[in-house]
């Protein structure tokens, strides 16, 4: 028996909107510690890892570990029927081939339930070891989204270079080139407006802008984004989900022939 009650149901709506175009089908794993997902895009270039810790739910019951295969497009269709202020409850019985989403309006005058068919999905779980990254940049998520969008009008790839001076986003295309440098800026009024660079070694990596733009759909989940880079590793783009966990996107770098 599984029963998870999330008062801030909009968080789950936002999570689905941010991953449904990257991944078609995924297994949601439920254990006593939380509700999580790890899934790769069909080309195995990008991966999304989601964690919603059990403590973030108003009510969290998970009698035994469960893995529920869901089509994210269909799940998104159902969650779009929930109001932004609704409380969302996810329910499933042991061994059932369906999951139920229940939506309650804040005033309790409208209660809806949607039953969705589960599916068998081959597990493609990657072991991602903890790593020390050479450069970690934290910046306003809206700024990062703006940069990715702007650059994708000019080129297909972005070179992200971190030095002591700042983080540089560069692209080149048929019409020309672009370079955007964000300097460390910790003297802002609000901490979420700061750009903070923690660098042990300078790093420069090339990524497909199409994927970066897809990751920025999670911008509504967090005011800040953290970009972790090492020369030998995929980049990690992380959006913290208030008090509950995170959504992390991993993207393999492009390499010169």
């Amino acid at each position: 028996m599984l029963e998870l009650r999330l008062v801030q149901g909009s968080l789950l709506k936002k999570v689905l909107e941010s991953i449904k175009d990257l991944v078609n089908d995924a297994n949601f794993d439920c254990s006593s510690s939380g509700f999580s997902l790890q899934a790769m895009d069909s080309s195995h270039v990008a991966l999304v890892a989601l964690l919603l810790r059990s403590e973030g739910f108003e009510h969290y019951r998970c009698d035994r570990n469960m893995s529920m295969g869901m089509n994210l497009g269909n799940m998104s269709k159902m969650l779009r029927c929930a109001g932004n202020d609704d409380i969302i409850t996810i329910k499933a019985d042991d061994g059932s081939d369906t999951v139920t989403f229940m939506f309650e309006s804040p005033t309790q005058d409208k209660i809806s339930d949607f039953e969705m068919k589960l599916m068998d999905i081959d597990s493609e779980h990657l072991g991602i070891p903890e790593a020390e990254y050479q450069s970690i940049v934290t910046m306003p998520s809206a700024e990062f989204a703006r940069i990715c969008k702007d650059l994708s009008g000019i080129g297909d790839t972005v070179v992200i270079s971190v030095t002591k001076e700042g983080v540089k986003f560069s692209t080149r295309g048929d019409i020309g080139t672009a370079n955007i440098v964000c300097r460390q800026n910790t003297t802002v009024d609000k901490p979420e407006e700061a750009t903070v660079i923690n660098m042990s070694e300078p790093v420069s990596l090339t990524f497909a802008l199409r994927y970066m733009n897809s990751f920025t759909k999670a911008t509504t989940l967090s005011n800040t984004v953290t970009i972790s880079l090492s020369s030998e590793l995929p980049v990690v783009v992380e959006y913290k989900i208030a008090e509950m966990g995170y959504i992390r996107f991993y993207l393999a770098p492009k390499i010169e022939e």
Binding site: T206, A252, E256
Partner: peptide, 14 residues
């Protein structure tokens, strides 16, 4: 244009 690498080059299936 540089080659797109794959996540499997970095991480193993578990």
């Amino acid at each position: 244009s540089p080659l797109q690498n794959n996540l499997m080059e970095y991480y193993c299936m578990v």
